[in-house]
Amino acid sequence: MISKAIDWNDEWRNMMEKCAGSVVPASAQHWETAESARRYLHDYGRESAGQVDRVNATLEALPLAPDSRVLEIGAGPGVLTVPIASKVAHVTAVEPSEGMMTVLQEHMNEKAVENIRCVQKCWEEVADEDLEPPYDLVLASFSLGMPEIKAAIEKMIALSSGQVCILWYAGKPQIETLYRLVWPHLHETDYSPGPKADVLFNLLYSMEIYPDVKHFDFEQVHVFESYDQMAEYFQCEHHIPFDTGNPGIRAYLETYIEEMDDWFVHSEQWPCMMFQWEA
């Protein structure tokens, strides 16, 4: 009996579509605002000791040289973009969100960085005239929201004269634990997670791409000065009604929130894989 080969692009698309059906509708609009992008930069970039480790670990793993030209897909507010720009000759930053792009440019101005070209488009819509190839490195860090992932990767490869590097979630990110606990009580259905690094690796393998693989266990620590501040964080960042009447919320708080005097400490585990290969 001959088994049918798995189409990993289809697997990725199907999981993305199911996950999109589980997302709170307001989440896309949320990330369009500069206010939310500034919060993201604060929590996951320059002012968060826990996440600085993520930035430094990523920078150390990338092949960056003073004459490098880098294309970053899904630059967000510049968590990696601005530090990379300080080490290389040029960065083209692709970012579709207006709010994220506004804050990226604020961040560039604050750091007096002038070697970044900003392209406010989703990756699928980026055209030749938007870019300045060839690039020594094409990077996509936690920005693989494209349903047609194979075509997206092929486009990355075509623009790289050196390496392609992708970072993506591995295992079960802790935030999905929150969704899995809360979702059945909110919507009377289970939460559908998105595709993880195993699907991505199998897709690359089916494309005859055999990347170098690195595993990272990042930790993000949030310290809240009050219960109300903690509730605002979960509601604004994760779009979850912070109702302690929800058994899922209670279970998550009991497991992942530590009360210290009048403070609330939230430690978020963030396992990921880095795939890197010569284009």
Rank of each mutant, 00 (worst) to 15 (best):
residue 204 L to V: 07
residue 166 I to W: 04
residue 179 Y to G: 09
residue 210 Y to H: 09
residue 129 E to L: 11
residue 204 L to P: 09
residue 191 Y to S: 10
residue 118 C to F: 05
residue 220 Q to P: 00
residue 222 H to C: 12
residue 177 T to E: 15
residue 229 Q to C: 04
residue 135 Y to K: 01
residue 144 L to W: 01
residue 188 E to D: 15
residue 163 Q to M: 14
residue 179 Y to E: 13
residue 114 E to L: 12
residue 148 E to L: 08
residue 228 D to I: 05
residue 189 T to F: 01
residue 234 F to G: 00
residue 180 R to I: 12
residue 120 Q to M: 15
residue 138 V to M: 06
residue 219 E to R: 02
residue 132 E to V: 10
residue 233 Y to I: 01
residue 198 D to P: 06
residue 236 C to Q: 14
residue 182 V to F: 07
residue 194 G to F: 11
residue 195 P to M: 09
residue 224 F to P: 02
residue 160 S to L: 06
residue 175 I to G: 10
residue 163 Q to F: 04
residue 163 Q to L: 08
residue 161 S to K: 08
residue 117 R to K: 14
residue 129 E to Y: 03
residue 110 E to Y: 05
residue 193 P to Y: 03
residue 184 P to F: 07
residue 151 A to L: 13
residue 181 L to E: 15
residue 110 E to H: 07
residue 123 W to K: 04
residue 188 E to K: 13
residue 202 N to G: 10
residue 133 P to K: 04
residue 183 W to E: 15
residue 117 R to A: 14
residue 208 E to Q: 14
residue 210 Y to C: 05
residue 232 E to C: 06
residue 224 F to K: 05
residue 238 H to F: 08
residue 192 S to Y: 11
residue 134 P to F: 03
residue 166 I to P: 03
residue 156 M to H: 02
residue 227 Y to S: 05
residue 121 K to F: 07
residue 165 C to E: 10
residue 205 Y to I: 09
residue 230 M to S: 03
residue 222 H to Y: 01
residue 187 H to P: 06
residue 239 H to Y: 07
residue 151 A to S: 15
residue 108 M to E: 09
residue 171 G to C: 07
residue 176 E to F: 04
residue 194 G to R: 13
residue 229 Q to P: 00
residue 153 I to W: 01
residue 227 Y to W: 09
residue 163 Q to V: 07
residue 116 I to S: 05
residue 131 L to S: 06
residue 232 E to R: 11
residue 198 D to K: 12
residue 115 N to M: 11
residue 218 F to H: 08
residue 200 L to A: 07
residue 182 V to M: 11
residue 171 G to A: 13
residue 147 P to N: 10
residue 215 H to T: 09
residue 124 E to W: 02
residue 110 E to R: 12
residue 239 H to N: 12
residue 134 P to Q: 03
residue 144 L to M: 08
residue 234 F to P: 02
residue 129 E to M: 01
residue 227 Y to M: 12
residue 109 N to D: 15
